[in-house]
Design a protein around this nucleic acid. Structure first.
Length: 474
RNA sequence: GUCCCCAUCGUCUAUCGGUCAGGACACCAGCCUUUCAAGCUGGUGAGGCGGGUUCGAUUCCCGCUGGGGACGCCA
């Protein structure tokens, strides 16, 4: 058997969304596995809605995910001549005909049809009129051979399609001379020798008409595999407005590409009980037979869980590399990598789901001025903490080494001299004073990460706060 | 409205006639504990309904119900 050739054909009318990304992933995975060729084709025939900007967004999204194409990006708009040529040939052979029906007539027709319980398809008004090129403004319709079967064996849905008698003569060229999607995809897929068309299930019911075009062209259709849609929590098709669907949005929030890939792969596809997949494993195991037929809801909680998993799985270098822009956004300045920061990051990814969250939690070690959470201060920076804090400051200032071990020693000693104070009674006020919040990694690691130069002043300012509080309440 | 498709825990799913219906996320509880997490242990939780076929149906068939998609001079 010859090599397979697949394609991903997004229309650049927005950003790369998760449905498209998953379709691309499935195409890519199968192609890599079979050592075929993967074509990227931009379907930009709708000039009004297509922009170079969103085309770039789509490419960037794919690149970020690590989905690489072998051919392209090709643009459908650049193939206009070829499309026109095919329509002319179809006209010539009689497989297509000119239609002068106005939009008004068609609308009225459809309304009347629907009203009387009909199918709302074209009635063939111009089918046998043999209209010539001089018939005025006209579209071109495919003369669907009504005796044929427009069925195929879908690799995901199984036997699909209907008889040609059930569909109408669809338009393949607009009155302005440009081709319609159905014509363009078929011609492009044929010219590009695409062997497997793997696309969203929203194309499932458009496929019969496309088969009719293949027939009219005397061509053999490719193999089709329709992948069920990813749906929103309401169970409907994803909406760009209401649902978080943009790949770049996820990226901006700090999701890792390996987590996205894993998440996307497991929506609709499975490999037994396995949940974790690297890109290589997806390629190795991907199988259209194990793509389900029902729509999948995008579960953000699962993505978060996967993202944390991959955050923890990253090497310190790779973690820092991914986190850097987020850390710098918090710091407001370049953030160099350091051993101290690496340690903090590894501690923080156990309590973060995305990089934005991680960077925010690292704030206390990145900036000089922190804000103290009011509720945390009220609860922990109380008069009873005053003496212990002052004692601790003395201990810390006397410390030679700023290590977790030395810090622990200082804390233990302070607790002892403060009448066997429970560690939590000291650790919590310190935590709030140093991080501004009541939650952080272990207190010694936290102090180590913040650095002596920041810890002592912050403790002193906390002491001041408490003093003011005492003065204010008396 | 017409055509097409889909239907297992809250969610993603495994199961290709015989399983105590499994896993993961989420959720709950316990352990751990200086906070928050993480981790560990345990737990709640599913075959939409009605008919068939069969010794036996989640699995095969039909109907119903529910949900979705397509019906453009959009892609």
């Amino acid at each position: 058997m010859s090599r397979i050739r697949t394609r991903f054909a997004p229309s650049p009318t927005g950003f790369l969304h998760i449905g498209g990304a998953r379709t691309a992933l499935f195409n890519w995975a199968l192609t890599r596995q079979q050592e075929g060729e993967f074509v990227l084709r931009i379907e930009d025939t709708d000039l009004e809605r297509s922009t170079r900007e969103s085309e770039r967004a789509v490419l960037e999204g794919l690149e970020w995910l690590g989905i690489e194409w072998d051919v392209g990006p090709l643009r459908q708009s650049e193939r206009a001549e070829r499309h026109a040529e095919v329509v002319e040939a179809l006209l010539e052979s009689g497989a297509a005909y000119r239609c002068t029906c106005t939009k008004e007539r068609l609308e009225a027709l459809r309304a009347r049809e629907l009203e009387s319980g009909g199918k709302g398809i074209y009635d063939g008004h111009c089918r046998d009129l043999a209209l010539g090129p001089d018939c005025g403004p006209h579209t071109v319709r495919l003369r669907v051979d009504r005796s044929r079967s427009l069925r195929w064996d879908d690799l995901v849905f199984g036997p699909s399609g209907q008889d040609a008698s059930e569909i109408g003569d669809g338009i393949i060229r607009r009155s302005d001379g440009t081709p319609l999607y159905a014509l363009a995809v078929v011609v492009d897929d044929l010219d590009m020798e695409i062997t497997h068309v793997i696309r969203g299930a929203d194309h499932h019911s458009n496929t019969p008409f496309q088969l009719a075009i293949y027939h009219a062209l005397g061509a053999t259709p490719p193999i089709f595999a329709h992948v069920p849609l990813i749906v929103s929590e309401s169970g409907r098709k994803l909406s760009k407005r209401r649902d978080p669907v943009s790949i770049q949005q996820f990226r901006a929030e700090g999701y890792l590409p390996e987590a996205m890939l894993n998440w996307l792969a497991r929506m609709g596809w499975s490999h037994g009980d396995q949940e974790l997949f690297s890109a290589d494993e997806i390629i190795r195991h991907f199988d259209l037979d194990h793509v389900g037929r029902s729509g999948a809801q995008a579960d953000l909680a699962k993505l978060e869980s996967l993202n944390q998993h991959y955050l923890k799985a990253r090497s310190p270098e790779a973690l820092f590399e991914a986190a850097r822009p987020f850390l710098e956004a918090v710091a407001g300045c370049p953030v160099p990598r350091s051993e101290r920061l690496d340690k903090l990051l590894s501690l923080l990814c156990e309590r973060s789901h995305q990089l934005v969250e991680l960077a925010e939690k690292a704030r206390f070690a990145l900036v000089d001025e922190i804000e103290i959470d009011a509720a945390a201060a009220r609860k922990h920076l109380r008069p009873v903490a005053l003496e212990p804090l002052e004692t601790l400051i003395g201990e810390l200032e006397a410390l030679e080494a700023w290590t977790p071990e030395a810090l622990e020693e200082a804390f233990k000693k302070t607790c002892r001299t403060q009448g066997d104070l429970k560690l939590g009674r000291l650790a919590q006020p310190v935590r709030v004073a140093v991080t501004g919040t009541a939650a952080s990694p272990g207190i010694y690691e936290t102090l180590e990460a913040a650095g002596r130069e920041r810890v002592v002043p912050r403790l002193k300012s906390a002491v001041e706060m408490i003093r003011k509080r005492i003065a204010g309440s008396s």
